[in-house]
Structures are given as structure tokens and as C-alpha cells.
């Protein structure tokens, strides 16, 4: 097991390097002079020159990448010229709310998605399966940002049960209760689509596994259906479902951009949208990098979870 985890950790290095390359390349797709777009058209020539030398804009691409990567490895993600503060500080302030929202949504969609998927599989073609299939169809067809608006309309405006957003400071007065109240609606909005996807895939995985010979063996031993389904079928289905949870983490982290905007959630997603509209390229670059890194780490965790479940994977 230790060896398995170490191998996975080692494999992380090239993936993370790849991520930095993509972030770097994409950000320098910016048309025109980057220094001008960072500082705006009214920047003084001195400031422009300063930025150019800071970012190594006079150097060749690979050299610039090397300079930037060295900075990143030392925790220096550059300076936001709009907010006048280091990018890393800004990101750290906003990372916790985003991880909280994404984590809550991922947990919710996994639990709901897997449970409903199992129910749909073992009640295949009976009414629970049909109802679930219909709900799933609605789930994958509803844009999350519209769902967020609907939730606000009903639960915040009409019934006034929950706040419509406006969470400003995670660590302000009110404590965890206040955070939880603000968290409910955005979590629901963000979890709906991935939950629907997980229901589908869990259902299919369960139906596939239920046809396997070892399920027949379990039945031939006289085990009760509950045990056959949970211990023999579900455990094997889970091996195929866990990587999907990893993929859905990507959806959740990306979708957080919409949901944070709809619910005024003080996370990286909303920061990114603001930064894009103010053309704060350096801040966007840092934000994208840190979220992508979080995604890579989550996928590492699902890889490891798969290894824990399946001895063939961890011994391979």
C-alpha cells in the first residue's frame, strides 16, 4: 500500500508540471503587449518597463516560463496590479470558502448519487427507477446557475428561509451556524448536476456487476440479497464509481465559478470572474493554477481510494 501511494505521488509531479505549462501558455495567449494589458493603456513608461523586467517579458518564452515556475515553487505567484497585493495572499483568503463549497457539494452529490443509483439498479424498471430516471434527466439538463437562481427565488425570496448569499467573511461573527445557513443553497445548486451524473453511472455499474459470476457465487452460498448487493455487487461497482467522483470534482470546482457568482460566495470562482473583467491576468493565472492543483490532488485521493478498495490495483 505504501509503495502504491508513493508511486502515485511520484506520478503527480509530471501532471502538476503539465498543469503549470498549460496555465502559463494559455495566459500568454493574451493578444497585444501583456504589460499594457496588465497595467492598462494609461500606464507610465517606467511602470511598463518595471513590469516587463519583473515578468521577464523581454526574454524568450522558455526563459519566462522558468522564471515564473521558480517563483511559483517559492510561493510567489506574482502581484495583482489591480488589488495591489500579492496574488498568493488573495488566493489564500478565498481558498477556504471555495474548498468548503466544493467539498460540501462533492460529498452531497456522492452520497445522493450513489444511493439513488443503487436504488434505481435494484428496482430496475419499477417505479422508483422510473422516477429517479426522470429526476436525473432534469438534473443533467438544468443549468446550475439557473437552478441557483430558482433556489434563491423560492427559498430566499418567497419563503425567506435561507439567505440568498452575501456571505462576506467566513470568519466573521455568527460562527459555523451562519456559514452552514449560507452554504445550503449554493451546495444544492452545485451538487445537482454531478449527483445526476453519478446516479446514472452508479446504476449502470451496479447492473453490470450484478451479472458477474461472483455475484452468482454469492447467491449460490445462500447469502441474503442485502449482503449480495452491498458486499459483493456494490463494493465492485464502487471501484468503477470512485474515478467518476474524481471527474465530478472537476465539474464542481469549475461550476463553483457560476455558483459563487450567483450566491455572492467569497471564493476563488467569483474572484476569477472579477479578475477577468478587470483584466487582472496575473490574478487569473494564480487562481486557475491553484484550483487546477486542487483538482489534481483530489484525483490523487480518488486514485488512492480505488487502490484501497481493489487489491489488484494496489498490487499492480
Amino acid at each position: 500500500m505504501t509503495r502504491f501511494i508513493l508511486t502515485r505521488l511520484a506520478l503527480l509531479v509530471p501532471v502538476l508540471l503539465g498543469v503549470t505549462i498549460i496555465v502559463f501558455v494559455v495566459m500568454w495567449l493574451v493578444p497585444g503587449d501583456p504589460a499594457t494589458s496588465i497595467l492598462g493603456t494609461f500606464a507610465t513608461p517606467e511602470n511598463l518597463a518595471k513590469v516587463r523586467s519583473e515578468l521577464g517579458l523581454n526574454e524568450a518564452m522558455p526563459v519566462r516560463y522558468a522564471i515564473w515556475l521558480t517563483g511559483v515553487l517559492h510561493g510567489d505567484l506574482g502581484q495583482s496590479y489591480i488589488l495591489h497585493r500579492p496574488v498568493l495572499d488573495e488566493l489564500l483568503d478565498r481558498l477556504v470558502p471555495t474548498l468548503l463549497l466544493a467539498g460540501a457539494s462533492l460529498a452531497l452529490c456522492s452520497v445522493v448519487g450513489i444511493l439513488l443509483g443503487i436504488v434505481a439498479a435494484i428496482r430496475q424498471n419499477a417505479w422508483p427507477d422510473r422516477v429517479i430516471t426522470l429526476v436525473v434527466l432534469l438534473g443533467v439538463s438544468t443549468p446550475s446557475f439557473w437552478l441557483g437562481m430558482l433556489l434563491i427565488l423560492w427559498f430566499a425570496v418567497r419563503f425567506a428561509w435561507l439567505p440568498a448569499g452575501g456571505m462576506q467573511d467566513m470568519f466573521g461573527p455568527g460562527g459555523p451556524g451562519e456559514i452552514a445557513r449560507h452554504l445550503i443553497l449554493p451546495t444544492l445548486a452545485l451538487a445537482a448536476v454531478p449527483a445526476a451524473v453519478l446516479v446514472r453511472l452508479t446504476r449502470t455499474a451496479m447492473l453490470e456487476v450484478m451479472r458477474q459470476d461472483y455475484v452468482r457465487t454469492a447467491r449460490a452460498k445462500g447469502l441474503r440479497e442485502g449482503r449480495v448487493i452491498l458486499r459483493h455487487a456494490f463494493l465492485n461497482a464502487l471501484v468503477n464509481v470512485v474515478p467518476i467522483i474524481g471527474i465530478e470534482a472537476g465539474y464542481v470546482l469549475g461550476g463553483a465559478v457560476y455558483i459563487e457568482s450567483v450566491f455572492q460566495w467569497p471564493g476563488i470562482g467569483r474572484m476569477l470572474v472579477n479578475a477577468i473583467s478587470t483584466r487582472d491576468i496575473i490574478l487569473v493565472q494564480g487562481g486557475v493554477l491553484i484550483v487546477a492543483a486542487a483538482y489534481v490532488v483530489i484525483n490523487l485521493l480518488t486514485d488512492i481510494a480505488q487502490g484501497v478498495l481493489d487489491p489488484r490495483i494496489r498490487n499492480a
Binding site: 501532471v15 503539465g18 498543469v19 505549462i21 498549460i22 496555465v23 494559455v26 495566459m27 500568454w28 495567449l29 493574451v30 493578444p31 470534482a249 472537476g250 465539474y251 470546482l253 469549475g254 461550476g255 465559478v257 476569477l272 479578475a275 477577468i276 491576468i281 487569473v284 486557475v288 484550483v291 487546477a292 483538482y295 489534481v296 484525483n299
Partner: peptide, 18 residues
């Protein structure tokens, strides 16, 4: 490499740049 990214985020980054 591209798939190591949350794809909505990648789309956002591309639009941000362009």
C-alpha cells in the same frame, strides 16, 4: 495534460486570456 484540468476552469482561462 488538458484533462488534468477541471474543464470549465480551462475554458474560463482561455476566455480570460483572449
Amino acid at each position: 495534460m488538458l484533462m488534468a484540468f477541471p474543464y470549465l476552469l480551462l475554458a474560463l482561462a482561455i476566455v480570460a486570456a483572449l
